[in-house]
């Protein structure tokens, strides 16, 4: 059983405080959803935990299995078991998905260890089948000219190949039509297991109809202001974020 503990985390961009004391623990097998309006610090939280250099953690800590990851480079955090599914995945012309994923898999192997190419492709193709991704996809450049749905499926494919302990999914539903959303959600559900903890960041309740969370947290102005089970998402949907503003923030 693994755990990802976020403890009283404060994150700033330059002089501006964005995350203002957030505490949350995700354990293997759990799916947590963080909901909240735009600009409340959800994406900042995800990127800061993944180690994006533009964000400064001014206080607090992030522990993976009890050990702080804050001194680790983003690639070290990834190899330790963190995965960030990007809201806006980078387009990288000239680097094929196959080469990219092979480099990522190879980075996880020991010094002098050789990648078994046959086994790698077998695994890659089975994950692609699972996600209903055409095999021709692997020779395309990373996200280069991809539709919104293709980009998000590509993120889930990477997650499937890298088998993280914890996935931070940043607005994975944004920009997806209902069919694409269903494919992505099916992919995530297929990866749900007792070995994976998920922190899903979303603006809308819609995604949670497909990926049913165990816990729902409402984020407002850099903090979690309310936590509950999946019914909280429905309540939020019915009452709107104004309710959060009026009822929760005042308290």
């Amino acid at each position: 059983m693994s755990s990802l503990e976020i403890k009283d985390l404060h994150v700033s961009i330059g002089e501006k405080q964005i995350v203002k004391g957030l505490t949350l623990t995700v354990r293997s097998g759990e799916v947590h959803a963080i909901m909240g309006p735009n600009g409340t610090g959800k994406s900042t939280l995800a990127k800061a935990v993944a180690g994006h250099p533009s964000f400064t953690i001014t206080s607090g800590d992030v522990l993976l299995d009890g050990r702080s990851i804050l001194a680790m480079q983003p690639d070290e955090r990834a190899r330790a078991g963190l995965f960030l599914a990007f809201q806006y995945p980078s387009e990288i012309p000239g680097v094929s998905i196959a080469n990219f994923l092979r480099a990522a898999v190879q980075a996880r192997m020991g010094e002098g260890e050789e990648l078994d190419a046959t086994g790698y492709y077998k695994r890659l193709y089975s994950k692609m089948d699972l996600l209903k991704i055409d095999r021709k996809f692997t020779s395309r450049a990373i996200n280069d000219g991809f539709s919104g749905g293709e980009k998000k499926r590509c993120e889930i494919l990477q997650m499937a190949m890298l088998e993280p302990k914890f996935a931070l999914m940043d607005e994975t539903d944004s920009g997806l039509d209902i069919d694409a959303l269903r494919i992505v959600a099916d992919g995530v559900n297929a990866l749900r297991s007792t070995n994976l903890g998920v922190l899903m960041i979303t603006h809308y309740q819609r995604l949670l109809g497909y990926i049913v969370p165990d816990h729902v947290h409402v984020m407002w102005d850099g903090r979690i202001v309310k936590s509950g089970d999946k019914s909280l998402a429905l309540e939020l949907e019915a009452k709107g974020y104004d309710w959060v503003k009026k009822e929760l923030v005042r308290a």
Partner: peptide, 27 residues
Amino acid sequence: EQEFYLQARGIRKDDAGELLTFGFFEE
């Protein structure tokens, strides 16, 4: 952002530079 994207997949900074160079050369 491209470098961070590759690093976020566990690829070391130097290797990310190499991959991005190949991406640049591919044309």
